[in-house]
């Protein structure tokens, strides 16, 4: 067995937003790796910083946000790593990587596609920009990509506008656009959240196929634990801008170490025989980003809270076994 190589290593990433009301620590010391050819799911509730983690990798943080610290080591084909954050966010070097090596798929395909250009126009533009090939060839490639993502009559569809397609079709176009330049990494930010379940199932299949056929790595950002169970190899659980737990998907689901992961899994309604009447909940709510708790960020909602410990000091991210980490003083006895 060969050592799995990491395509991306995110180290101690801090992305803060400097708003009029105060500083929002959207990403606060996040570190994880994406192994080549694997799917890593970042899970968390709204405000956990999962989307901004994805954006930080591309060095695309909207105003008033800033990446303060950290590194994103990019090592395609085991080459010498490049720190994406050290590149000029508007420079040539990063623009050659964005869209070409690392592609982004966003949640709302309608907003990601131009309403005044045909699908073909947009795809040909992207392909020519990155691959430097002729118009005719680029169009053929665009059609082939549409066919690959399961769009019937791709030649015809190239002349359609985004509004002429259904939601599922649009998301397929976005995926075709993203994989047209054969990226090594796909960052998919809630790509199925706006879709129906039957369409979602087809799109998730498509991601699996792309991973298997093209060998792309996928960073899949979602809040839906059902989707995570379907698609992830590795899971990163985030809470208020920090990673609270990470590990292989089966271990996370069957033996969660962090109380937040446990509680999150417990509160998912699931289709099952002999359903319980009440759902387990996490008490309270996600705190306001301006009012972050002292000590462990989760302690006001935690069942295992110990006064004097959890509300005083910040638990470090500790290793458990070969592949797992968790940020909890009490995680040891959780098994």
């Amino acid at each position: 067995m060969s050592e799995p190589r990491n395509l991306i290593e995110v180290e101690d990433l801090r992305t803060h937003f400097f708003t009029d009301e105060g500083i929002v620590k959207a990403v606060d010391g996040v570190a994880f790796t994406i192994p080549t050819g694997k799917t890593v799911c970042v899970v968390g509730e709204s405000g956990s910083g999962k989307s901004m983690t994805g954006r930080s990798i591309l060095n695309m943080i909207p105003y008033p946000g800033r990446i303060l610290e950290g590194a994103v080591q990019w090592r395609p084909n085991g080459a010498e790593p490049t720190d994406l954050l050290s590149l000029d966010p508007k420079g040539k070097a990063i623009r050659a990587i964005r869209g070409n090596d690392i592609a982004l798929i966003s949640q709302e395909p309608m907003a990601a596609l131009s309403p005044v250009h045909t699908i073909g126009n947009q795809m040909v533009e992207t392909i020519r920009l990155h691959l430097g090939i002729g118009k005719v060839e680029a169009r053929q490639r665009a059609a082939a990509m549409l066919a690959k993502v399961g769009i019937p009559k791709p030649e015809l569809r190239l002349d359609s506008y985004a509004f002429q397609l259904s939601g599922g079709m649009r998301q397929r176009v976005c995926i075709a656009l993203a994989v047209a330049c054969e990226p090594k990494l796909l960052i998919a930010d809630e790509p199925t959240t706006a879709l129906d379940v039957t369409t979602q199932a087809n799109i998730l299949d498509l991601f699996q196929e792309l991973k298997n056929d093209l060998g792309v790595s996928i960073l899949f950002i979602t809040h839906d634990l059902g989707v995570v169970a379907e698609i992830a190899d590795e899971v990163v659980v985030m809470y208020l801008g920090q990673v609270v737990e990470q590990g292989p998907v089966e271990q996370i689901f069957h033996d969660p170490l962090h109380p937040y992961t446990r509680a999150l899994l417990g509160s998912v309604p699931r289709v099952a025989r002999g359903r319980a009447k009440r759902l387990n909940t996490i008490r309270g709510m996600v705190p306001s980003p301006f009012d972050r708790p002292q000590g462990c960020l989760f302690h006001p909602r935690c069942d295992r809270f110990e006064a004097g410990l959890c509300d005083q000091s910040v638990p470090p991210l500790e290793r458990y076994g070969d592949a797992r980490t968790a940020r909890c003083f009490k995680a040891g006895g959780a098994g």
Binding site: T198, Q200, L225, V227
Partner: peptide
């Protein structure tokens, strides 16, 4: 039947 089977199951061992 199709709708029921399309719902993702939150358990990776059943994948």
């Amino acid at each position: 039947e199709a709708l029921l089977s399309a719902a993702p199951i939150p358990d990776p061992t059943l994948r």
